[in-house]
Write a protein that binds this DNA or RNA. Structure first.
Lengths: 218, 218, 218, 218
DNA sequence: AATGAATGAGAATTCATTCAT
DNA sequence: TATGAATGAATTCTCATTCAT
């Protein structure tokens, strides 16, 4: 009984936490219930994590780590935004289906009501994708596949926003309902959504007809 | 003491509620604290609202009503998406600046812990804009200013997603920090964001270059 | 609107009180609900009765008054206990059937947990029957129909106890269930109960010391 | 602080509960006050009992258990009702003197407000005595010491009613005052009451004089 | 005098956190 | 070191009573 918590047990605890936080939200999640599900005592939980909040953070980190891991699959060789986006969307759709709790948990983070904390977490979680997306766009601008008057950071932000909502739409109750409202009462198929989103993004990032005719008329 | 609850006081109570819910979230918000801030007794609060949930809904409705009121300013005569979008974005930016708590409260609704309201609220809140945006896009498709292969509902959804994130980015801690991350550490100016978002949308909704060249090659 | 409460309205209020107290018990009875049922405002209720307790007392008195009224029907000419008892039992059985709430209310009184109060009420409510029953027994002793070694007061007390339980058994949930337990699961018929109770009482009051010594002298 | 809840403490808690329920009634009894009196925290109270009702039931059961324990002392060898009754009355008189709160608590059960427990508790509490008393009477009928035209169940019920009132008369405010009223202002001595009650019962259960003379005249 | 909205003390219950074992 | 029982602050909600109208 008095044996040190194994790596595996610790992982199990985090998973139990992710599940509970995803299912009931931070406030309603119960430390006792989490410990119970993980098969450990509340005591150890508090030995490893000073309080509920810090345990929540640990869960967030695990959850986000898993998402990052998934995103590493994207072939960075891709220089065209559309090809890149296609890969990312596919991965996120699969990830959302396989790790619903992770996404719900991620949404919980966005509720954080303390800017010091928010800054720390946002940096930790979003820095990589922020940089990555911005770079892709910058490169695409250089090779002429994305319009040059677009601010790469802001464009990357828009891009990420759409992806974020894509995931929430797959996993979080309110967003699902919202999705349905726009699609005549039922969630659209992943393939259709991806196709439409790609079309939207592709258009967005390239020159619109006016611009063309404008430039053409120069 | 024993002061009659005026219309004004009732409004003040809702505002106090909106503030508390925005600041602390539904679970942590305290009915006693709200009553205290509004300068009324807990008793009346429960006279007017049967429980915390129903008071929360009343706050949400007030908050949403205010947003809808603001959105009514949009000239519906506009048939071009870009002109329409320009107006909507301006209004939302102003609204977010003036009613930060409303937006924070809106974000609160999207939380897991409030899943019990999800379907009901989503319908109530988003139905109007969903229909409106979809219509605008459909019309624009008819007059040839939006590409025809785009599903109007899904496109409207993308559009609304971007607007939603715009607002969260202005009001909610986590989203603000995320914004900063994409913009070199500081929040971008409203004007610049609007300009970029318009550009993004305009391109997105119109024919992409390939399409153009395709058509051009006809 | 601003008219004085009529006699009738006041009576209606007491009846509403009796019903509520009988149905929910003193603690759970709600002054607002009583006022509502009586069609008056809580305000007047408190104008006429200083607090819940004093209103409860007023209800008790009305309720007890009605019982006394019913008991006045007993022909006092009766000198034999059995004949007297027969009449009383019949009246109480009828009264219990017609005024269930009165009996339930009466049981509420017995819960009173303040001896000063208890003394006052007991005196008010039981004094008449106490005297009456004792007298009957005393007379019966004089004319030789009740054994002489019986203390008239104590015997009267036993008699009243049995009548009290009879009524509770007809009206109060716990006592009803208790009744059933002794009678194979269902409440016995009034006629049968009366017959048995009369037999029990008749025997109890008559068998005299002589009989005992008779046996002893055998 | 952080004292382990021993068996003894648990018992103390139940006693504190019995006292509080007896003193103030179920509704007015306060869980916090009970915990305080028992020297434990509200938390543990709720660890052991899911809510106030279930704690109340536990108290009732303890209280009833103690009474049953006491009643086990009765020598069941007794076949004559009078001898049996003598023993039971003695035990109940002693029990009431020593455990006033138990009896007050028992009275609490019979209240309207506790109707929700009525059937369950009545069965649990009274079944044993109901069966026991009925049996005794039935046996006595067989050996000719109790008149045969008496329904054993109903007779047992009358018997138990008298015992019940005996106990309430010793412990509950209202019943005490009522007692006094029948006895010239003061509670009668236990010995005297027992003697009179025995006499009453003995007579009640045996042939009345009329019956005797009736039979004699045949 | 009647009204009923407003008051606020009080009660049950929960659960993050502590600490004796 | 692990355990999980014990703690008690905090929260929601109720309702007898008051008093401005």
């Amino acid at each position: 009984m008095y044996e040190k918590l194994t790596e595996a047990k610790l992982a199990e605890t985090l998973e139990a936490g992710i599940h509970e936080f995803a299912e009931r939200g931070v406030e309603k999640a119960s430390m006792a219930s989490i410990a119970g599900k993980a098969g450990i005592s509340v005591g150890v939980l508090y030995k490893y994590y000073s309080d509920k909040d810090s345990f929540f953070l640990a869960c967030v980190r695990r959850s986000v780590g898993r998402l990052e891991e998934a995103l590493k699959e994207v072939l960075v060789r891709e220089d065209k935004v559309s090809g890149y986006a296609d890969q990312v969307i596919r991965i996120l759709q699969r990830h959302a289906a396989e790790h619903r709790d992770d996404i719900r948990m991620y949404h919980e983070i966005t509720s954080i009501r303390n800017s010091r904390f928010a800054a720390e977490l946002a940096e930790e979680i979003e820095k990589i994708t922020a940089g990555l997306y911005t770079d892709i766009i910058r490169k695409a601008q250089k090779n002429g596949t994305v319009r040059e008057d677009m601010d790469p950071g802001i464009a990357a932000f828009f891009f990420d926003n759409l992806l974020m909502m894509l995931q929430f739409g797959l996993c979080c109750d309110y967003y699902r309902e919202r999705w349905k409202l726009y699609c005549g009462g039922k969630l659209p198929e992943n393939d259709m959504v991806r196709e439409q989103l790609l079309m939207f993004l592709e258009s967005a990032f390239t020159f619109s007809r006016e611009d063309v005719s404008h430039e053409g008329g120069k």
